[in-house]
Amino acid sequence: MAILEVKNVKKIYTTRFGGAKVQALSNVSFSVEDGEFVAIMGESGSGKTTLLNILASLDKPTSGEVTLKGMNLSHIREKDIAAFRRDHLGFVFQDFNLMDNFSVMDNIFLPLVLSGKKYPEMSQRIKPIAASLGISEILQKYPYEISGGQKQRTAVARAVITNPELILADEPTGALDSKSADELLDIFREINESGQTILMVTHSIKAASKAGRVLFIKDGEVFHQLYRGAGTDEEMFQRISDTLTMLQAGGNMQAGGEIKAGGERQ
């Protein structure tokens, strides 16, 4: 069952001065199944962030529609959007977005407190999550006292504690060293294996190679996609880099058979 469906999404920005139009997304369609781990790749300026903002209901598409578990995001009323985001989506950002003035524990509690949960329930929920993310020891610390990897794991804990339908991750390894990045990706895989659907936008081939499926975006369109199938991470890594090389070389070619030659199904 498709948990997220994106149909013919188009986004045009009008610049504030002069009114020139910039097309960020021209026509994006894809869907994400329940329990999938999908990575979206693309160069800077390809429209990844715009797409993510639309999925996160922070922004609205110019045309086309996005449905999450059958709910059309454009139909949610403005005042319910915050609560909707809180209840159905979890976010992991490149720059963590932890609040300086909250301890690690309070940062994780934030969405639950906003939904009016009681302390005993929250403290029940945090225990297994903190243990599996390896942050039980630092719950009382403040963001400036912990490493980047720990910050990002805190952000992951904050994202999963509400049991969201979908986790959206925006360059989650972008600000991490390679060891922390590997750890984080392992964590993503673990929580995905426990049934959590994840959609991750990334530059990094390494990060994308952990995903079950990789979508390539170029000039505002989904250009191509790769399925992991039964391949290993290393094979996946190779295929992604081949794809990227081809994309670079034949920038204007329409996606098609040549790239599919690796045996993936369209």
């Binding site: 922070l58 915050a82 609560a83 809180r86 934030l110 969405p111 906003l114």
Partner: peptide
Amino acid sequence: ERFDIMQKVGMSLGE
């Protein structure tokens, strides 16, 4: 900065 983060983690602008 706080405004931005709080909105991202699920508070409405009004709140």
